[in-house]
Each structure stands twice: as structure tokens, then as C-alpha cells.
Amino acid sequence: MFRAVCRLQWKASFTAVALIAVAGFIVPLLAVQRAGFAVGDRRAWDLVTMLAAVESAGSLFQILAIMLGLTLSVSAWSADHQGDHVYALTLPVPRWYYVLLRFGAGVVLILPVTLAVGLGCALAIQGIDLPAGLRSYGTAITLRFALAALVAYAATFALAAGTKRTAALILGSLVAVFAISELLAMVGVGQGLLTTLMVGIFARPGPFEILAGPWTLIGV
């Protein structure tokens, strides 16, 4: 049963997942290449600039993780939405179990992309002679990518599973929060409400924190 659901998820999302996997493989190679670590003559470069270049490329990992989560969750539910969930609701399994199967199938598809990222990281740092005091974080980046993709997937999966009404409600709430924040900022009260909210979601200890902050393949 789970294998059948995995196959369905794969068929619905394989093009996007394959593209993200390719990108995940290339990003670490490009990051190292652009920063100049792979070039023999390191004297021409300033280490700070090199690390900044690696860190800058690292933000692509965040984007890829979010894209992967979003792709998997949207593709998990889009066909069901089109058919008003009739097919899923008429399967002889409890609804919670079906949702779990669909969620699990998405998680399985995070694995090959994570593998591509890990392979890319391993190849990128293989053979480069890091200056004293610098370390590579290939495994950490790979694990972080997997967790970030999982968090993004879980959050968007919950949203995508809802009805259009639920989606409209959530979107409406976000727009309302943004509008109130802007209005308050205009009259000089409660400045930075949106910023506070974003900090609350992404920076404070919590699952979304993994998506924020620097992603450095090479650091001190």
C-alpha cells in the first residue's frame, strides 16, 4: 500500500524533484568553485571574501529545501483537490492513516534529494586543501538540508491538505496581519509587528529556526 502511494507521489512530482536534486548536487560544487577554494593559487583571494562567497551560495540550500517541501506537498494533494478528495475518501482505510501514507511518501522523496546534496557536498570538498582553521561541514549541511526540507514539507503539507476555504483563511489572516502591521507602523505604534512575528516564527527556538541563519559549507 505504501509502495503504491510512493509511486503515485513520485509520478506526480518526479520532474520537479529531479530538478531540485540536480540543483542540490550542483550548488555545493558551485559554491566551492565560485569562492575559489578549488583553485590552486589561494593567495590571490582573501579568505574572508572566500567564506562570504561560500555563505552566500549556501542560501540556495534554504531555497531548495523550501522548494522541495512545497513541491512535494502541493503535488501530494493537487490531484485530490481536483477530484474533491472523493477517491481518497472512498478508499478502505481510515482517513488519518491515508494522510500518514501520503505524508510518508513525501518524506521518502526527500531522501534522494538529500543524497544528491550530500554527494555534491562530498565531491565539492574532496580534494580541496583547506587552510588551517577552516573546516568543511558537508555532513552537517546535508543533514540540515534534510531537516529543513522536512519542516518545510510538514508545514506546507498541512496547509495543502486543507480545502480552498482553509487556504483562503490562512492567506487572508496573513494579509490582515501584514495590513495591520503597516497601518500601525504608519501611525508610529507597534513598529515592526511583522518583523517581530517573523523573528518569532523563524529565529526563536522552534522548528522553523532551521530554515533561518547561515548555511556554510566551509567555515571556521
Binding site: 503515485l8 509520478k11 506526480a12 490531484a79 481536483q82 477530484g83 472523493v86 477517491y87 472512498t90
Partner: peptide, 11 residues
């Protein structure tokens, strides 16, 4: 068999 088809189009 519902009134409207509801199968997954990618299969």
C-alpha cells in the same frame, strides 16, 4: 462509481 471522474491523472 461517482458521477465525476476522480482518478489521478498522472497514472
Amino acid at each position: 462509481v461517482p458521477e465525476r471522474p476522480h482518478l489521478y491523472p498522472t497514472l
